[in-house]
Simulated assay, not measured.
Amino acid sequence: MARHDEVLIALRQIIRATDLYSRKLSKVAGLTAPQLLILQAIASRGEMTMGDIATEVSVSQATVTTILDRLEKRGLIERKRGERDKRRVYAYLTTAGRDIMERAPTPLQDEFMARFERLEDWEQSLILSSLQRVAAMMNAGDIDASPVLDLGAIDRIQPNGDGQRRRRDSSSYQPDRK
């Protein structure tokens, strides 16, 4: 087998592993990876502003707001104005939010990071430079991406109660028909 075929197979395996994890997370907890990361960030601090969440999870504040809207509709978080500064809005986990986090699998990138950190510095550098070169070879070097292993739009809608997806990503938006 040609080396380029082996590289393409390895890339496909990475994409497939990410897809399978995303499906598992959706099936088990009804969440996307970014939703889970945001819930984890809030859980770790007890309360967070939208800006703090955006910084912690490495996504835009607009994306955080969109995701929090969806989590709030599901009753997983609440937003409240600050006691001292009414301009600040804080997100809190609800009991339902804590319950769903207990059921959710560990984020895929957490497992990856733990294994990656155990590698020698030279091996980490080799992997990083190789992946950066692959991204450049695929004309993906300028694509904005956060460190969240997930497929599709980062703020996409998950299945609703009847298992139907409302939106996969911004390029294929289909409003609900009731």
Rank of each mutant, 00 (worst) to 15 (best):
R45P: 08
R45C: 14
R45V: 12
G46E: 13
G46S: 12
G46C: 12
G46W: 10
G46R: 12
G46V: 09
G46T: 13
E47A: 15
M48E: 08
M48V: 12
M48D: 10
M48Y: 10
T49P: 04
T49L: 00
M50H: 14
M50N: 15
G51H: 12
G51T: 13
D52K: 14
I53P: 01
I53V: 15
I53E: 00
A54M: 05
A54W: 02
A54E: 07
A54C: 04
T55C: 00
T55K: 15
T55L: 09
E56P: 05
E56D: 12
E56G: 05
E56Q: 13
V57C: 02
V57W: 00
V57Y: 07
S58D: 15
S58E: 15
V59E: 04
V59R: 08
V59Y: 01
S60E: 11
S60F: 01
Q61V: 09
Q61K: 14
Q61C: 09
A62Y: 07
T63E: 11
V64R: 01
V64N: 01
T65H: 06
T66P: 00
T66Y: 01
T66K: 04
I67C: 02
I67H: 02
I67N: 06
I67W: 00
I67G: 05
L68E: 08
D69A: 07
D69R: 06
D69N: 11
D69L: 04
R70E: 05
R70M: 07
R70Y: 06
L71T: 06
L71G: 01
E72Y: 02
E72S: 09
E72P: 08
E72K: 01
K73C: 13
K73P: 04
R74A: 13
R74C: 05
G75P: 04
L76W: 10
L76D: 02
L76H: 02
I77S: 00
E78R: 14
E78P: 01
R79L: 04
R79T: 11
R79Q: 11
K80H: 09
R81S: 10
R81D: 02
R81E: 10
R81Q: 09
R81F: 06
G82M: 01
G82I: 04
E83T: 05
E83M: 03
R84P: 00
R84W: 10
R84H: 10
R84A: 10
R84V: 11
R84G: 06
D85V: 12
D85Q: 06
D85I: 08
D85N: 14
K86H: 07
K86A: 08
K86C: 00
R87T: 15
R87V: 12
R87I: 10
R87K: 15
R87L: 13
R88P: 11
R88T: 14
R88L: 15
V89R: 12
V89F: 00
V89Y: 02
V89A: 09
V89D: 07
V89W: 03
Y90C: 11
A91M: 04
A91H: 03
A91G: 10
Y92P: 05
Y92Q: 05
Y92V: 03
T94H: 06
T94D: 03
T94I: 02
T94R: 08
T94G: 01
T95F: 02
T95V: 12
T95P: 05
A96N: 14
A96T: 11
A96K: 14
G97K: 04
G97T: 05
G97E: 09
G97F: 01
R98A: 09
D99P: 06
D99W: 00
I100E: 12
I100F: 08
M101D: 00
M101Y: 06
M101P: 07
E102K: 05
E102W: 00
